[in-house]
Deep mutational scan, measured.
Amino acid sequence: NQASVVANQLIPINTALTLVMMRSEVVTPVGIPAEDIPRLVSMQVSRAVPLGTTLMPDMVKGYA
Rank of each mutant, 00 (worst) to 15 (best):
P38E: 10
A7S: 15
N14M: 07
L55Q: 01
V27Y: 03
P50D: 15
Q9M: 14
R39H: 10
T28G: 06
D58Y: 12
S46Q: 13
M56W: 08
S46D: 12
T15W: 08
D36F: 11
L55A: 00
G52W: 05
S24Y: 09
M43T: 04
V41S: 04
E25S: 09
A16H: 10
V26L: 11
M59D: 15
P57M: 10
L19Q: 06
N14D: 12
G31M: 03
D58L: 08
M22V: 06
T28V: 10
D58R: 08
A16K: 07
A3E: 15
A7N: 01
G52M: 05
P57G: 11
P29I: 06
A34H: 15
I13H: 12
V45L: 13
R23D: 04
I13E: 14
T15I: 12
P29E: 11
T28A: 14
G62L: 08
S42K: 08
K61M: 13
P33N: 13
M43D: 03
Q44V: 11
M22L: 13
I11R: 01
A34I: 09
A48F: 09
N8Q: 11
V49C: 15
V30D: 15
A64Y: 04
E35Y: 08
V6H: 02
N14W: 10
V30C: 11
G62P: 04
P29H: 06
L55Y: 02
P57E: 12
V49K: 00
P12I: 05
T15M: 09
I37H: 03
Q9L: 10
S42E: 07
S46N: 13
L19C: 06
T18N: 04
V20Q: 07
V45I: 07
T53A: 14
I11P: 00
N14Q: 11
T18D: 05
P57T: 10
I11L: 14
A48S: 13
P29M: 05
A34L: 04
R39N: 13
M56K: 13
G62M: 08
K61R: 12
T28S: 13
Q2F: 10
R23A: 05
A48L: 14
A48T: 10
A48K: 08
A34S: 13
N1A: 15
L55F: 12
L55V: 12
G52P: 02
A48G: 07
D58A: 10
T15C: 04
V30W: 10
V20E: 07
A48M: 13
D36I: 08
G52L: 05
V6D: 00
V26A: 13
D58P: 08
R39K: 13
S42D: 06
R47T: 10
N14K: 06
A64F: 05
I13N: 13
A3W: 08
Y63R: 03
Q9S: 08
P57D: 09
P29Y: 05
V60F: 05
E25V: 07
I32N: 00
V6N: 01
P38W: 08
K61L: 09
A3I: 09
N1M: 15
V27P: 00
Q44G: 05
S46E: 14
D36L: 08
N1V: 15
Q2P: 15
M22Y: 02
Y63V: 03
A64H: 15
V60Q: 01
P12G: 08
L19T: 09
I32F: 03
Q44A: 08
R47G: 05
A48D: 14
T18C: 04
L17C: 02
D58M: 12
V49L: 10
I32S: 01
I32H: 01
M59G: 04
V27C: 06
P33R: 10
N14S: 13
L19P: 07
V60D: 02
N14E: 09
I37G: 05
E25L: 05
K61A: 12
G52H: 12
V26S: 15
V20S: 15
M56P: 01
L51W: 14
L55R: 01
V49Q: 02
S4P: 00
M59C: 05
M43C: 06
V41N: 04
T18Q: 06
A3V: 06
P57Y: 09
P12T: 11
V45G: 01
A7F: 02
G31E: 01
P38N: 13
M43E: 05
V30F: 10
P12S: 10
S46W: 13
V6A: 03
V5H: 00
R23S: 06
A64T: 14
I37C: 04
Q44F: 13
A16I: 06
A16V: 09
Y63T: 03
E35T: 11
A3H: 14
I13Y: 07
A64R: 08
L10I: 14
P29S: 04
R39A: 07
S46A: 15
L40Q: 00
R39S: 09
K61N: 09
P33E: 05
T18F: 03
M21A: 04
T15E: 07
T28R: 03
T15D: 04
L55K: 01
N14H: 09
A7H: 02
N1G: 15
A48E: 14
T54L: 05
M21D: 04
L19K: 07
G52A: 07
G62K: 09
T54R: 03
S46V: 14
R39C: 13
A34F: 07
G62F: 09
I13L: 11
M22I: 10
T15P: 02
V30T: 10
A16S: 10
D58S: 11
P50A: 13
V30S: 14
S42V: 03
Q44I: 12
Q9F: 12
N14T: 05
V26Y: 11
M22K: 00
L51F: 14
M43L: 12
V27E: 02
P12V: 06
A64K: 15
P50Q: 13
M43F: 11
V60A: 01
K61Q: 11
R47P: 03
I32E: 00
M56E: 10
P29C: 05
A16P: 07
I37V: 08
V60Y: 01
P33G: 07
T28F: 06
T15V: 09
M56H: 11
Y63P: 04
A34G: 15
M22E: 00
G31K: 00
P38H: 13
G31A: 03
G62N: 10
D36Y: 11
N14I: 03
A3N: 15
V30Y: 14
V5D: 00
M21E: 01
E35L: 10
V26G: 04
G62D: 11
L10T: 13
P33F: 13
E25P: 00
S42A: 13
A64V: 14
L55E: 02
V20L: 12
P12M: 07
A48C: 10
M59R: 02
T15Y: 09
S42R: 08
V20C: 12
A16Y: 08
V27S: 05
V41C: 06
Q2C: 10
M59T: 06
Q2T: 12
L40M: 09
V5P: 01
E25C: 06
